[in-house]
Design a protein around this nucleic acid. Structure first.
Length: 565
RNA sequence: CGGGGCGUAGCGCAGCCUGGUAGCGCGCGGCCUUUGGGUGGCCGAGGUCGCCGGUUCAAAUCCGGCCGCCCCGACCA
């Protein structure tokens, strides 16, 4: 029985002052969830129904590719994490039990699942396997934010594939690609599968599933030609520089007092930003000082730099810059630099450029890479809207929520945990692994973000807490109420999940609440339509209204519902 | 971790500068009214003013410390 008069659905007229993201505001206002602390949330009954709907889609599609659901603990011995080398991650919650034994709260489950597999899997006959669970993840995030989008505790579906070789891993990976594509389609989301950074942990390949929306924390580079990549790794051909100065025979000094920014330079010298060189002095692990160059109108992409260097790097400190270049930030450049130079590809072939002169208040103009300095070339810039992607399309950049990721782990965990099997020749081999995550809460939040309108949430059918909200107008005991009571039973008999608003509240209040909660279909029983022998139906998305004959209204509503997005 | 902001009733806020009985709107309870888009009226309940300390005859208000929350950035297997 889901009668609104007794259902725990605390809606509010106003959102908490601190809530900024649309999904945050609507989740609170519609009574789906409540905040307990920074990054800690309780799901209330209606929100939990949506969450479980998302889970169920994920479960069905994983089962369909042969996934086997299990459950592993959140609290784990620290020893496992020391063995995998992940114990020192700052986000890992660490604790001690009463006997002072070291424990951790799991942020994912590679350590435990690999331990099980290493103990139980012996033979190539036991492979492949896909194991998964839905379990709480704990992460001591430095900054939880945007409601349920980034929390310190959340539920994740994580699955793990185990194969005998890279080819097997590729097969399991592709099975997940198919399952994930179907999951996000069924969830009704607009989504992209984008190439993503494999990180420093030695992964082999990775994709992220991104749902574009304003509250998204990630930027994705997209093109109509089908290109899709996280901007962290996206690569594209830069737009040419308009108005490049004429070449000079050799660089010449020009006084630029106080011009420490590209803006200052373009104003002072009258050149376009693209005709300047932006220089970043960095100190790379294992490589020492390095001068990284990008075009003045471009931005350095630190992920791509790290991948190019195969190492982390940090910006040089002011004192280091002085020692290495004899100048302060804003006036350093590649010509005559005593450290190796790494230049972005977009600078290749340009001439007449302005670069720092390595002297206070001095720049050089007429600089030509390759002639005036010999850099190592690499693609280390962030792509910009308007760039041309590898297959010819024009790049645009959109914010998006990461709703899922898939990752080829290789033997990253099977090595430390000794997960091996015997092949047909009786030889011991390492197991090849993949890991695959989905956050149901983010699916819920992304759906809210993508489809909300002025009135509130507008759920995709597959996620909505209820299929139909039935609004009964008039007083208890009037004819409208007897009719709606009967319709409520008939709707449920027709297979629909119904939220029945039989409160003694004004019509406007009920309609407003119904639109805020956003079930795909609203049915209204009141005196007016009843006199015409009808029930009013309103489709939430687009708010299109129509009338259904009272006779057979439940079946008609079920048919209508089935056509909704 | 760097920068900024906030903390007064369930929610949104005023009061603080200039110390002197803690307020408003919404929501909540009762009665009446209204019932197809947040009806109107009357009555009422509800607050250790984030916490600790200091100054003062007197602190929501001034001073110090702490805690919590949010935003931007950094970070994000």
């Amino acid at each position: 029985m889901t009668r609104l008069s007794s259902f725990f659905l605390p809606t509010t007229r106003e959102a908490p002052a601190e809530a900024e993201a649309l999904s945050h505001r609507l989740i609170v206002r519609a009574g789906l969830a409540r905040q307990v602390g920074a990054g800690m949330w309780s799901w209330l009954p209606a929100g939990w129904r949506a969450h479980r709907n998302a889970e169920q889609i994920v479960r069905e599609e994983l089962d369909a590719i042969g996934g086997q659901e299990m459950l592993m603990p959140v609290i784990q011995p620290a020893e496992l994490w020391k063995r995998s080398g992940r114990y020192d991650i700052d986000e890992l919650f660490k604790l001690h039990d009463r006997r002072d034994a070291e424990l951790v709260l799991a942020m994912t489950h590679e350590e435990v699942v690999t331990t099980h597999v290493s103990r139980e899997i012996r033979s190539y006959r036991d492979l492949p396997k896909i194991l998964y669970h839905f379990q709480t993840k704990e992460r001591d995030e430095p900054r939880p934010r945007a409601g349920v989008l980034r929390t310190r505790e959340f539920i994740m579906k994580d699955s793990y594939s185990f194969d005998r070789d890279p080819e097997g891993l590729e097969t399991s990976y592709q099975l997940h690609v198919g399952a994930y594509d179907r999951i996000f389609d069924r969830a009704g989301l607009e989504w992209y599968r984008v190439e993503s950074d494999v990180g420093m942990m030695g992964g082999l390949a990775a994709h992220e599933y991104m749902a574009p929306c304003p509250a998204g924390e990630n930027d994705v580079a997209l093109s109509d030609a089908g290109y899709a990549a996280n901007v962290e790794i996206a690569s594209a051909t830069a737009q040419p520089v308009d108005g490049l100065p004429e070449p000079l025979d050799a660089p010449e000094e020009v006084e630029t007092p106080g011009a420490t920014t590209i803006d200052d330079l373009t104003r002072m010298l009258g050149v376009p930003a693209g005709a300047t060189i932006k220089a970043f002095p960095v100190i790379a692990d294992g490589r020492g000082p390095l001068l990284v160059l990008v075009r003045g109108d471009h931005r350095l992409n630190e992920f791509k730099l790290a991948n190019t260097l195969g190492a982390r790097s940090r910006p040089a400190e002011a004192a280091e810059v002085r020692d290495l270049f004899g100048a302060v930030g804003g006036f350093i450049g590649p010509v005559g630099a005593r450290v190796p130079v790494l230049a972005d590809e977009a600078l290749r072939g340009l001439h007449g450029l302005v670069a720092g002169g390595n002297k206070p208040d001095i720049h050089l103009r007429g600089v030509e890479p390759g002639r005036d300095f010999e850099p190592e070339w690499a693609d280390v810039r962030r792509v910009e809207p308007g760039d041309t992607c590898p297959n010819g399309g024009v790049i645009r950049v959109e914010p998006a929520i990461e709703v899922g990721n898939i990752f080829k782990l290789g033997t990253r965990y099977s090595e430390p945990f000794g997960a091996r099997y015997l092949d047909e020749q009786g030889e011991e081999q390492l197991i090849w692994m993949g890991c695959y995550g989905i956050g149901p809460a983010r699916i819920v939040a992304a759906a809210i973000e993508q489809y909300a309108d002025e009135q509130g949430i507008s759920w995709p059918r597959s996620l909505a807490p209820f299929d139909v909200e039935l609004v009964a107008l008039g007083k208890d005991g009037e004819e409208a109420r007897t009719v709606s009571d009967r319709l409520y039973d008939e709707l449920r008999a027709a297979g629909l999940d119904v939220l029945y608003d039989e409160r003694t509240a004004s019509a406007g209040e009920k309609f407003t609440d119904a639109e805020l909660l956003g079930c795909p279909l609203r049915l209204t029983v009141g005196k007016k339509s009843l006199e015409a022998g009808e029930v009013d139906a309103q489709v939430r998305r687009g708010q299109e209204k129509r009338s259904l004959p009272l006779e057979g209204a439940a079946e008609a509503a079920a048919e209508l519902w089935a056509t909704l997005p």
